[in-house]
Structure formats: structure tokens, C-alpha cells
């Protein structure tokens, strides 16, 4: 990795700092502090970055070289076989397609529930505002839990359908609070009032004024919920049994996790034969499949970082 170049800016840092703060003398202890601090951060970066780096180089190295420990810093005997196998594996493609469908539909449902509700809750003239807010907040404190939720989904006849994966977690109090905080700020009461004076109804204010202004909050909510759905496996595990409906994460679970421990519950139809088959396949493609499944998010998030940061920050400011 490009560590040496990282230290150059660090060496320059004290100069920048003193220029900004008009500091006449920089103490030696301060400079030592900066140096120790940078070293500390470099260690943190290496520790956090190395596993990701290793997966990357292992995915393009010869599996034999990986297994014998010859791969640790650079790819050895580079090959794209792993990726070729991944792309040839139909279960992964089906999983990929399902995950994309679940994520898109799930995000749409999420926004359809959260946006109108959080807008209405941000209007002080809304009679019932307090009541509805508490009705939603209470679910943060107490929930029915796994078993009653499962029985409900079963009774609704949603087992083995897309809805079982999407609906039970489609909205939460957190998202509504975030949305409410946003609309309180972005569509202030006065804007609302003047639109009303001009004869606009609440619907018109919401669809014509609030929605066009809410691109940032739509992005934030969609990204948080979308990442959650993309990485989710548990709902799919308990509600789906048809393999053609498995999302990517569930396919990965069988390849990466279950195959190492046959005694784990939950796997269905894992005969001994298919298990050995899976083991063999897993050893060939495990690193490539990790990359293929994680890459979309890892590539996207640096560009959308401000929306994620925004979500964390609005979400933390209560009331």
C-alpha cells in the first residue's frame, strides 16, 4: 500500500496548522504529538484495511497458493478463474437478481410509508400530531418479538413471498423521526401558511413543495434502508424456503458459512452429497464471491458519504 506517501502530508501538517491559527511558536511536544497521532492512525488504517485487501488479492490468486499461505501481500499466480466460476453459478445470479428486486421494491415501500407520515408529523397545525408521534415512538421501546411477528407473517399468507422479506421491517420510528426533523427545517411553517393563503391544500403543499425540496432526505432514507436490505439475510432465512427466491446473502451464507459446519440448523435440503459439492465450490470461489457481493456498496458509498453522515447526524438529534 502507498504508506510512504501518506507520511509526506503529515510532515507538512504542523506548518498548515500554525499558519491558520497564527501561532508564533509550536512546541516540540506538539510536534511529537502529531507524529504519534499519525502513526496511531496509520496502524488503525492498516488493521482495518488489511482484511479487505487480503480478500481482494486472494480473489485473483490461485486458490492453491492462497490455501498454502503464499498469498499475504500481493496476488500470487494471478487468475480470474474464481470470478469465472462465480459468473457461471446460476444460484448467485438468481440471488443477485432477487436482492436487487427486494432492495428496489423495499426502498419504494419504505419511502411511500415514511415520507408522507414524517411530513404530516412536521406540521404543527396537524391535529393528532402528538398522538401519532407517540403511537410510533412507543414501538421503539417495546416490540412483540420474533415469534409473534413470525406467526403474523404466516397468518397473512406471506410465507415464501417477496412481501415477507420487505414488509415486516419496511418502516421504523427512527426513519420517521429523521424525516420529521428534515421537513421541520426545510418546509417551515411560514412557507406552508403562505401556500395555504394562495389556496393550496395540504396535498398540494406536500406534492408540489415538500417533495421537490426533499431530494437529500430521500437519498438518505433510501440509502440507509437500501444498504440494510442488500445485506439482510435473517428475514429471508426464516420466511423463504423456495431457493429461487433466495436473496444473495442467503446464497452466500450457504457457500461461506454453512458449508463449514453441517450441524448448523436452518439449512434445508442439504444432503451430504450437496454439502461436499458446496464445500468444493466454496473453496474455489469464496473470495471472489465476497468481492462480487460487497463491491457495489463499497464502490458507491464514498461518493454518497455525505448522505450517510447526514442520516447518522439527523438521527442522533432527538426532539
Amino acid at each position: 500500500m502507498s504508506l510512504p506517501t501518506r507520511q509526506n502530508p503529515a510532515a507538512k501538517a504542523p506548518l498548515d496548522g500554525s499558519a491558520i491559527l497564527h501561532r508564533p511558536v509550536r512546541r516540540i511536544s506538539d510536534r511529537r504529538f502529531d507524529r504519534v497521532n499519525i502513526v496511531f492512525l496509520i496502524v488503525v488504517i492498516l488493521v482495518i484495511g488489511y482484511p479487505l485487501w487480503f480478500v481482494m488479492i486472494a480473489s485473483i490468486s490461485d486458490p492453491q497458493a492462497v490455501d498454502t499461505g503464499r498469498v499475504w501481500l500481493w496476488p500470487v499466480d494471478m487468475t480470474l478463474d474464481g470470478y469465472r466460476r462465480v459468473f457461471a453459478e446460476s444460484s448467485i445470479w438468481i440471488g443477485y437478481r432477487n436482492t436487487i428486486v427486494y432492495t428496489l421494491v423495499g426502498v419504494a415501500v419504505h419511502l411511500a410509508i415514511v415520507l408522507p407520515c414524517s411530513y404530516a408529523l412536521s406540521r404543527t397545525q396537524f391535529v393528532g400530531r402528538k398522538l401519532v408521534t407517540w403511537y410510533i415512538l412507543f414501538t421503539m421501546l417495546f416490540s412483540g418479538g420474533l415469534i409473534p411477528t413470525y406467526l403474523l407473517v404466516k397468518d397473512l399468507g406471506m410465507l415464501d413471498t417477496l412481501w415477507a422479506v420487505i414488509l415486516p421491517g419496511a418502516a421504523g420510528a427512527w426513519a420517521i423521526l429523521v424525516g420529521r426533523a428534515f421537513f421541520t427545517q426545510t418546509v417551515p411553517e411560514e412557507l406552508n401558511e403562505s401556500a395555504k393563503v394562495d389556496g393550496a391544500s395540504d396535498f398540494q403543499v406536500f406534492f408540489r413543495i415538500a417533495i421537490p425540496l426533499s431530494a437529500p432526505i430521500i437519498a438518505t432514507l433510501a440509502l440507509f434502508h437500501g444498504v440494510g436490505l442488500w445485506n439482510e439475510y435473517f428475514n429471508a432465512l426464516i420466511y423463504l424456503s423456495d431457493r429461487d427466491k433466495y436473496p444473495l446473502q442467503l446464497v452466500l451464507r450457504e457457500l461461506l458459512v454453512v458449508s463449514q459446519d453441517a450441524s448448523q440448523g436452518g439449512g434445508d435440503g442439504d444432503s451430504a452429497e450437496s454439502l461436499t459439492e458446496q464445500l468444493r465450490l466454496a473453496s474455489l470461489i469464496k473470495y471472489a464471491v465476497m468481492i462480487v457481493s460487497s463491491l457495489p456498496l463499497l464502490v458507491i458509498y464514498p461518493f454518497l458519504q455525505r448522505f450517510f453522515t447526514q442520516g447518522v447526524l439527523i438521527g442522533s438529534v432527538k426532539e
Binding site: I45, W230, Y233, Y301
Partner: peptide, 12 residues
């Protein structure tokens, strides 16, 4: 870089 692992699924 330190945010990256947050986006990796638990399965992975």
C-alpha cells in the same frame, strides 16, 4: 477507509 467495513454484510 475506516467506514468501509460498515457496508460489508454480516454474512460476508
Amino acid at each position: 477507509l475506516t467506514y468501509a467495513p460498515h457496508f460489508v454484510s454480516v454474512v460476508v
